[in-house]
């Protein structure tokens, strides 16, 4: 390919070439360099840059920066594993797990959960140790939607579900609600006539959730029943 469309940069000493305009995070992932992330999805114009896990250091620029929001440039020199990056990633991770009880075996996402993958990568426990366990001030399980259940303490508020719903549907049926520590995902109005029509039950939000905080009610019931049976056996 001609030089105009490709950009060459160095990541952790490795030279890689990617199409111009690619986000740095995607460039790394496509070239087998793993950077943990939760909120980034391929195709986002303005990634939220909210999970603060995909931090990298770029020579000549101040401080760690979220790689999801940097566009690749020719000659860029990137470091993904500096001490400061790791320290911040570990803290962000510690913070995210501190709202959860760490009972992975009771969770539908067990073994394919993004947080488990990141835990392994960062060598971090999934149960909060140094920090106190602070569950969010809301019910364990919220059944606002007729067929989707939401578990706020598992939720890392990455916003993938909000994004995917707004992309897949003409209008979206779920959004963030409230603010700060008690920010939540809300299906408000999904039970109301007329308004509820927005949700086409495409289950895109359930499938995109990296941590199993959104599940189909039927599937979750079956899973829990199965689990119960296993435990009693």
């Amino acid at each position: 390919m001609s030089k105009d469309v490709m950009v060459t940069l160095t990541v952790d000493g490795l030279e890689i070439s990617v199409p111009r305009g690619t986000k740095l995070l995607k460039a790394c992932l496509d070239n087998g360099i793993y950077i943990p992330s939760l909120c980034y999805l391929d195709g986002m114009d303005h990634p939220p840059a909210s999970c603060r896990l995909c931090l990298v250091e770029i020579e000549g620029r101040p401080g760690p920066l979220p790689s999801c929001s940097q566009t690749v440039e020719d000659g860029m020199v990137v470091h993904t594993e500096t001490d400061e990056v790791r320290l911040l990633q570990k803290t962000a991770f510690r913070l995210l797990v501190s709202t959860n009880d760490g009972k992975c075996r009771l969770c539908m996402a067990n073994k394919h959960c993004e947080m488990q993958k990141i835990a392994k990568f960062l060598h971090m426990p999934l149960r909060t140790k140094k920090l106190r366990h602070i569950p969010k001030d809301m019910p364990e399980v919220i059944e606002e939607h007729p067929c989707i259940v939401y578990e706020p303490n598992k939720c890392v508020l990455c916003g993938r579900c909000v994004y995917i719903c707004s992309q897949q549907n003409y209008d979206f049926a779920l959004d963030f609600a409230k603010r700060g520590f008690n920010t939540t995902i809300s299906f408000f109005g999904s039970r109301e006539e007329g308004v509820g029509d927005y949700c086409r039950n495409c289950r895109a939000c359930v499938d995109i959730c990296p941590v199993g905080a959104l599940n189909l009610k039927d599937e979750r019931d079956a899973f829990l029943q199965n689990l119960q049976a296993k435990i009693s056996a």
Partner: peptide, 14 residues
């Protein structure tokens, strides 16, 4: 805190 990013949302709570 608006609750968007991890550090501000959960960090300040701790």
């Amino acid at each position: 805190s608006c609750g968007k990013c991890t550090f501000c949302r959960i960090g300040t709570r701790h």
